[in-house]
Amino acid sequence: MCKGSQTSGAMNTIENRHETIRFDNKALVQVNDGIKMTDDTDNVNSTSASSGGLADAVELQLAREIRGLDREIMPQRDLWKAIERNIADYPQRKQFSLQRDWMPYGVAASLIIAITALVVNVVGIEQKGSTLLAADYAIDSIDSGYMNVRNPMVDQFRETNKNLDQATLDDLYRNIEIMAKARKDIETQVRANPENTKLVEMLMRVHERELELLKQDYSQPGRSL
């Protein structure tokens, strides 16, 4: 029997305890500077060992012993060297995250450059009297800038979503293919109707939408098409 324990029916107090120690049907919880033993609602089993003052005292003794156990035990050998060797083969993928952080700004910048190039070149070449050539040149300029952004995003998309099941991936790629086809169709229309500015705007919106699709991480919970 431990010194300092007081048994009094439903409540038992041991001084100078600072944490909860739980048992089969009791819990020792801190109350002010002491501890009381209360019914533990997490456990409804009653046991013969817990009934009666002596049994409670034994439980309290066990609680005291448990509380006296070391929270920490140090291993005999230092494990860090082996851990360090192992984790060196698995660097954190921070660069990947950084790439994702600046990617939206890169997309925005590329689109601005592409639009500027479109305006400048269309105006410049139209002055030479070749509207059709101006449209072709402008679309090529947009495409060039667009592909510079799109291609790394496709790689990133594959990497980010590689753990998705095949059916979901198929759906995603089907949507991206639909967007790509729409883009091609509009490009054809723009080449055929170079003076139609609405078509150019539509082309830009399709570009943006396609990039948005590629930019999303569908592997995260709650993300879907």
Partner: peptide, 12 residues
């Protein structure tokens, strides 16, 4: 719960 009870009994 039964395993815990068993552990307690043995430790007691």
């Amino acid at each position: 719960k039964a395993q815990l009870h068993r552990a307690r009994q043995l430790l007691q």
